[in-house]
Simulated scan of single mutants.
Amino acid sequence: MSFSSIYELLNESGAQFRIFDMGRRISKLSTDQFNKLEQGSIPYPTPYLHHAWLALLLWNPKNKEQNVVWFLKFPLDEQGYLVQAVRDDFLGRLMQNITQMLNKETIDEEKDALKDNPFSFTPDQEKMAMFHAIASTTIGRDPSGFYREANAYFSGELGWNNWQGLGYQGIADVVARLDTQSSHALALSIEHLPNEVLSALGGCLEHILPDHTLAGALQQRLSDSLDNDNQEPVVIAALLRALSQAHDEALKQQAILTTLNSQYAYSAEVLTAIATRCFLTLQYPDILKVFLEKLAESEAGQAGFSRILADLMFMPALRALILREFRQPQRSEALSAAIGHMFGNQFTTH
């Protein structure tokens, strides 16, 4: 038996499955969208470092304990489309094992087989924890053993300084299971959270869409943090990440502009958070202009400037906007110099 696509293989496997983008953040890809990506009908929507980062979650519909996750990383061509030959290579390597994928006795063997697969990758611990939380809600499994204590903490029951025993997986489980009531409780906790907890929470919230109340609490904590001359940049970055999917576009724009006009605008960590998580808001020219100017003078240096811009310019919509800003005659000397170092003397303002 042979298959012409991963989508066809999944459909014929007998497993239920969900597909997730794992690049800039964790987000669901519909089966129709994934099929079009595979066929080369559309470019990858959110490329990261010139690759498509995917998680394929498969489970036995008759026994949810029988499940497997494939983390796959595929290169994209210069236009952001999946490289067909790479996909075909992956399929060829996988075909010998796929029919036994959901056999309980061979699940571990299947995972081991993928470890040596050149297209597999392992997410960092933070993203892995959040993926496990999202996967367990998708399948309908109970949260981890860390959930109860984390939920009690964010409800204020344990005392805000008693956070040392919290597990990151518990925080992820709380975020993945937010409903109206628990989201309101979490919003009330934001002003009280120590920086360590807030930083961990921000790394989880970037993967969900916070409601209006929670987004407002995060924005207020960001405003307070920006007024603090001794705040840690990691906290500013975490709050921007947490706000990156808020529905209120005006709130996000204001949050980013206020940050870019603060003393923290030159922090590599803050600018990276904006570039990798708030990239859609950079499509507004007034925000993009300030971002580029700050990046050119930031502690990230020329290497950081070139690396961040190369990643952003891989997205066609942003590429056109960035090039337009590069050609603005009123750009600063610092930005002009950074552009020159990145592109060489052949770059022209005409």
Rank of each mutant, 00 (worst) to 15 (best):
I236R: 03
N195G: 15
L309F: 01
T281L: 13
D211W: 01
L54Y: 00
L57C: 03
E38F: 05
H192R: 08
Q79E: 10
A133I: 15
V197R: 13
E157Q: 06
S155T: 00
I171M: 07
E191N: 07
A296T: 07
L10E: 12
Y81L: 04
F90S: 04
Q245C: 15
Q96R: 12
S144P: 04
Q245H: 14
E232G: 12
Q219F: 05
L282Y: 02
S41A: 11
Q330G: 04
L292R: 03
G92F: 02
L201W: 05
F121Q: 02
L292G: 00
S225R: 01
A317C: 14
R93A: 08
F20M: 11
L58A: 06
A185T: 07
F131E: 09
L102R: 01
F154V: 01
E206N: 03
F305D: 00
R331T: 01
L323P: 00
T348D: 15
H50W: 10
D311F: 00
S13V: 06
E78I: 07
T180Y: 01
P233K: 04
L292F: 04
Q33T: 05
W70F: 12
V174E: 06
N63M: 09
D32P: 00
A317Y: 09
W163A: 02
E12S: 14
Q33V: 00
A268P: 13
L29A: 03
R25L: 00
R221Q: 11
A15V: 08
C204W: 09
